[in-house]
Nucleic acid binder design. Structure first.
Length: 299
DNA sequence: ATCCTATCCTGGCTGC
DNA sequence: TGCAGCCAGGATAGGA
């Protein structure tokens, strides 16, 4: 399902078809795609505007608009489960699941297609503000190993639901969380606060490595749904180590991959590589019989 | 604060 | 072969 690597792939593929184009017409085929904005108002905001930049933030696709040389808000899109975006020559048949169409000034059209209708594409006055609640970008500078270690320590919850929380870190979804946790040797139900610095460092490394490798392969195409905008499947699914591999041998240790449900999500992990409890740590002999108390000094 | 459930949706799969 | 029922799942809202 589209996560950060798939959205990045979409952005790279539609960018050349959209940047510099002026929108000439708008057809909304499924009103709720606009997320509450009236179709007439959407059309009014968008028609006559020029797309100046197409970019990605977490799993959102953003297209900045200008009008008469001044800023004119942005198109803000989210593919959710089954959304797709295409820029094609006029007359191209987008099929029965087309939800929104924009006519461009070069006899081409932008199409938003979405079987399950969960996806959204709307107009916002201020994209930065609309996205302000998101956590750091996992491939960005703000997402450092030190930040991750500290942020995990400060939370009560379990590891996987936290990594799926877009306000904690923005862009990971079910597939890449399972993959990154396996590569890090961390159990999805580990208490976030129990993750030690060295483990957080490994997790940070593996999250980035997983996402980077997936982007390089144009994302993952799973079941019949996700395709790149060119209709090509991504190729990263061939690299899955645990996702949807329950019952199959772990690529590292040959133990059977298990599937459990965590936070309503199918969760795949290797019981051997990802032990529930932290690996026993060589700790210094407990010389003081009592645990040292917190300093009596107030912070 | 965190967890849990329901909601939004449809195609595809399972089991009869 | 037909069909009912269940499932997947990103994000969010509301309740415990």
């Amino acid at each position: 399902m589209p996560e950060l690597p798939e959205v990045e792939t979409v952005v790279r593929l539609i960018r050349p078809g959209l940047e510099g184009r002026t929108i000439r017409g708008a057809q909304v085929l499924w009103k709720r795609t606009l997320g509450g904005l009236a179709p007439s108002r959407f059309a009014e905001r968008v028609i006559g505007a020029r797309v100046v930049r197409v970019w990605r933030r977490a799993k959102f696709v953003v297209a900045d608009l200008e009008r008469d040389g001044g800023r004119a808000g942005a198109l803000l899109g989210h593919l959710r489960m089954t959304g797709r975006m295409h820029v094609e020559p006029a007359g191209w048949d987008a099929g029965p699941y087309e939800r929104l169409r924009l006519e461009l000034d070069n006899r081409r059209c932008f199409h938003f297609i979405d079987v399950r209708k969960f996806g959204r594409l709307t107009w916002v006055a201020d994209a930065e503000r609309a996205l302000a609640g998101l956590g750091p970008e996992p491939l960005g500078d703000a997402f450092s190993a030190a930040w991750l270690a500290g942020a995990l320590r400060a939370r009560r919850g379990r590891l996987k639901p936290l990594l799926l929380d877009q306000t904690f870190v923005a862009g990971l979804g079910n597939i890449y969380v399972d993959e990154a946790l396996h590569r890090s040797g961390l159990h999805p139900l580990r208490a976030a606060r129990s993750v030690r610095s060295a483990e957080a460092e490994r997790l940070h490394e593996e999250i980035r490595a997983t996402l980077t490798a997936a982007i390089a392969r144009n994302g993952s195409s799973f079941d019949t749904f996700y395709r790149t905008p060119e209709g090509q499947p991504g190729e990263y699914q061939a690299e899955f180590r645990v996702y949807a591999r329950d019952g199959q041998p772990c690529s590292t240790c040959a133990t059977e991959i298990e599937r459990i449900v965590v936070g309503q999500r199918g969760t795949h992990y290797c019981p051997r590589c990802q032990p529930r409890r932290p690996a026993a740590q060589a700790r210094s002999p407990r010389l003081p019989l009592r645990r040292p108390r917190a300093s009596s000094k107030r912070s």
